[in-house]
Design a protein around this nucleic acid. Structure first.
Length: 553
DNA sequence: AAGAGGGGCAACCGCTACGAA
DNA sequence: ATTCGTAGCGGTTGCCCCTCT
């Protein structure tokens, strides 16, 4: 595309190579769009012309890539090396794939983003022919679209900045190793290998646990890695876990790796809130110490509510129905049997009924607003991840029969799992290896899949409504590996249980926000998968002795 | 038909990492 | 060990085109 500005700047080029193909109307060289190089040469800025492209291509053919600063010297291009490199990488290099992203690519991007955060270059490495800039633009556009849809909006009273900062501070303080390790770890881990992403889920699934047992560093590192972004989401992992468990009631909820969160700095408030609260307990590996100022320890009932509370306050299953989202329907609309699941929490929880009622009942204005903002429905990442996981995991499980490695957490499981159970669930589809033994990457991988909730936001309200029924149905199918129906194991008498619940709730909210942005159009797939998983899972969730204790506390 | 707004894309800017001198 | 140059990455900005009102 040639912008007007380009025309102006082209004149600059004219000096060198007369003959700019597309910009003839030049006027004087636009000083603003150029800068003086070290040698007094005025470097051109702005859009590239065909002539410039030709020059650059010719130069690269002769000299190869690299040493970009030499381009200007040898080719006569009045462009800085940086500009040349960018132009080449994004537009001129061979094998570049042009055009809109395919559905597959989109899904991959979502998945990758869930894992890597805003690591565009790394993501691009997994998408042959695509550039980081392209992916970045795509993602940013996507986020914008979501925002417009009114999905995730932080409450006015939330102080993003402050929260974010506080969160970061906490993270930093808690972490033995600073963020510095963050990138390294990310790079070192499996994330680099796209194909491995889901594979990891299975093998390392058990790794992640916010249990105190895990070293602070490990946990933080993992978190950071999962987040992968500069955002202050360092605790995403915990969040993810919670989300998974909690919300996941049916749809594997949105817990989705909030990883996507990275790209959503705007939503700091909730996340901060949750993260800050959650943060210490897990990171420190000490009993959760509720901070009166920050967190309000919910009563036992509340705890579950935690899960539910989330529903109540911020995101209720009903939300999908009312949200502005309706205006922007997903390209794919599926019958939403699972949506209800969202709201529905595991029967075991005391508030379950209340939750259902809540879900079904109209939402109060306040609640509604929040719900709109935080509806879980948006977790495209999760969907995608789940889908992948399903594909990989299901095949494995089926072949193996009663395998404990099912990568995907069924909605049912999620549903029936209490906060504690959630932990359990995670372990369930993992190899149950000691958390310590897992790499951060693996850990992330684990948590991510379940997290990837579907993009509920895009579901038609009408379809979303059916929730309660769907939920019930799903619950019915929940079964333990042993073959018996799983019953909620949450023990409210346990302090840790409460802690877990609370944590979960907070995390969940956070996740919701993120999910909203991340949500995509794969919801249908997700549901489908969930449904399948639910049924098939009964065979072999591989719940070799749930490790709820370890995980939750 | 005209204007406004948003979407999408391209490019730039600032920062960081890495290697060489 | 320090400094400088280069390459790369992520965030932001600017502009054109399209759609909606």
């Amino acid at each position: 595309m040639s912008h007007s500005k380009a025309n102006d700047s082209d004149d600059g080029m004219l000096d060198q190579s007369d003959g700019m193909l597309d910009q003839s109307d030049s006027s004087s060289f636009d000083e603003e769009s150029s800068k003086v190089a070290g040698g007094g040469t005025v470097l051109k800025k702005g859009p590239w012309t065909a002539t410039e492209d030709a020059i650059l291509i010719d130069y690269v053919k002769k000299h190869g890539e690299g040493n970009w600063n030499a381009v200007q010297k040898h080719s006569g291009l009045f462009r800085c090396g940086k500009s040349c490199r960018l132009r080449w990488a994004n537009h001129l290099r061979p094998n570049l794939k042009k055009g809109a992203f395919t559905a597959e690519e989109e899904r991959l991007i979502i998945e990758l983003h869930a894992k890597m955060g805003n690591k565009w270059a790394r993501m691009a490495a997994h998408l042959p022919g695509r550039t980081d800039n392209e992916i970045k633009n795509y993602w940013n556009t996507r986020i914008k679209r979501r925002q417009r849809a009114g999905l995730p909006l932080y409450p006015p009273d939330v102080h993003l900045q402050g929260l974010s900062e506080s969160q970061q501070n906490q993270n930093i303080g808690e972490l033995n190793s600073g963020d510095t390790s963050h990138h390294d770890l990310l790079q070192a881990n499996d994330f680099d290998i796209p194909d491995v992403i889901f594979d990891n889920l299975k093998g390392s699934s058990g790794a992640f646990c916010y249990s105190p047992v895990m070293p602070n560093v490990s946990v933080n590192s993992m978190l950071n890695q999962s987040l992968g972004s500069s955002q202050s989401f360092s605790f995403m992992p915990p969040t993810i876990n919670h989300v998974k468990r909690l919300g996941e009631s049916e749809t594997l909820v949105p817990g989705f790796s909030v990883s996507g969160s990275n790209s959503l700095p705007l939503f700091g408030p909730i996340r901060n809130d949750s993260s800050a609260k959650i943060h210490r307990p897990f990171g420190l590996g000490v009993p959760y110490d509720p901070d009166p100022d920050i967190k309000k320890p919910p009563p036992y009932g509340a705890v579950m509510t935690g899960g539910l509370a989330l529903l109540n306050g911020n995101f209720s299953a009903s939300k999908p129905l009312n949200g502005p989202l309706k205006t922007e329907l997903p390209s794919l609309q599926y019958p939403v049997t699972d949506i209800s699941n969202w709201g529905t929490c595991p029967p075991p929880t005391p508030s379950l009924e209340a939750v259902d009622a809540y879900i079904q009942s109209p939402v109060s204005p306040t609640v509604q607003m929040q719900s709109e903002s935080f509806s879980p429905r948006n977790s495209g990442l999760l969907e995608a991840l789940l889908h992948e996981a399903q594909t990989l995991g299901s095949s494995r499980n089926r072949s193996s029969g009663n395998s404990s490695n099912l990568p995907v957490l069924t909605a049912t499981q999620a549903v029936d799992s209490s906060p504690l159970n959630l932990c359990e669930v995670e372990w369930e589809y993992s190899d149950q290896i000691s958390p310590l033994g897992h790499s951060a990457a693996s850990t992330l991988s684990e948590s991510t899949p379940p997290i990837s909730s579907s993009s509920l936001d895009e579901l038609p309200p009408s379809k979303a409504l059916p929730g309660s029924e769907a939920k019930t149905e799903t619950v019915e199918h929940v079964s333990t590996p042993e073959g018996g129906d799983k019953i909620t194991r949450l023990d409210f008498s346990r302090p840790d249980a409460l802690l877990g619940a609370d944590f979960f709730a907070q995390s969940y909210e956070y996740a919701k926000d993120l999910a909203a942005f991340i949500s995509d159009d794969y919801f249908s797939d997700y549901k489908q998968m969930a449904a399948e998983t639910t049924y098939s899972s009964t065979q072999g969730w591989g719940l070799d002795e749930p490790m709820e204790h370890d995980c939750c506390l």
